[in-house]
Amino acid sequence: MKDIIRFSLILTFVAIISAGSLSWINKITKSEILSQEQKNLTDALMEVLPGSNSQDIIPIQQEGQILYYIGYVNSMRARVNGYALIVESKGYTSTIRTLVGIDTSGTILRIKILFQEETPGLGSRCEEIRNGELIPWWQAQFQNMNINNLAVDKDGGLIQSITGATITSRAITDSIANKTKVFIETMNSAKTDKIDE
């Protein structure tokens, strides 16, 4: 009986020390983790909305959820440069999240894949950067594409699909096409509503 009390005291003591030191480390790294995540998102946003500075990109929220981002041309916030929205697509082995930048007329500025866990060597090549290039070649194909004729080559479109990973290529391309079309339509109808008023 004496042993049980002694043992539980020792174990509690060890537990308190480890929990204490962990909460200290957690405090130090927490702000670092948050600022890293923030920085990654800001970098991605600046990449898909070229021409907008980070302080000119404003998130539009509804009920605490970010719907999309508006990028303005300069700090006057009078002229809209483009919109950025996150598109999710069911790939081959994972749910792929892509940040898409489009201008007001429905032309894609840039896309950037934020998360994917596709098959290494096949689907994962959607993030492959070729020697001497700055952005992944597969994602570069989307630049200046009109959202209305966005499809992979096997479906008669212009996006060259990744060899051996048609499912991944098609999933990303089609989900971008669908989501951006709906988005531009709602934006346009919102505009006409305003004129009606």
């Binding site: 480390i25 130090i28 790294t29 670092e32 890293q36």
Partner: peptide
């Protein structure tokens, strides 16, 4: 054994947190 596991788990969490912060 429980004491060893607690010590190890503490250091693993430290690595986990440090890596998340400095090498995401």
């Amino acid at each position: 054994i429980p004491i060893f596991i607690m010590i190890i788990a503490t250091f693993v969490t430290i690595v986990d947190l440090l890596m998340a912060g400095f090498s995401p």
